[in-house]
Amino acid sequence: MHEQSLVQALLDLIEEYAGRYGAKKICRVRLSCGRVSGIEPACLRFAFAVQSQGTVADGAHLELDLLPVRIYCFACEQEIQDEAYHAVCPRCRGSAVVLVGGTEELKLIDMDAE
């Protein structure tokens, strides 16, 4: 439920950049975050739909790029991507792994203005 705080911070950032570029309406917002960053995409979309009402981003389409989970496997001696984090290597099923990516925090990449 921290998605509500994230969306408020996101809307502040959107307003700031919309003002800077003199945009009156934002129609598309592109975000990225890691798959294990603790953000629930459905909650984020719902919060955005509710909280953006009456703002410059009211009705904007939200695109969320989910960055893959990346682990390093000591047995395979390489970095491997996965859809989710299971604390095991998806290739060899070994457990000598370290989480190296997928925890990236929510970032506003760009947006389209009318």
Partner: peptide
């Protein structure tokens, strides 16, 4: 018009 941002949403918190 495309507006590039590339900023962490929690920058204000940080």
């Amino acid at each position: 018009m495309k507006i590039p941002v590339v900023k962490n949403v929690l920058d204000a918190n940080n």
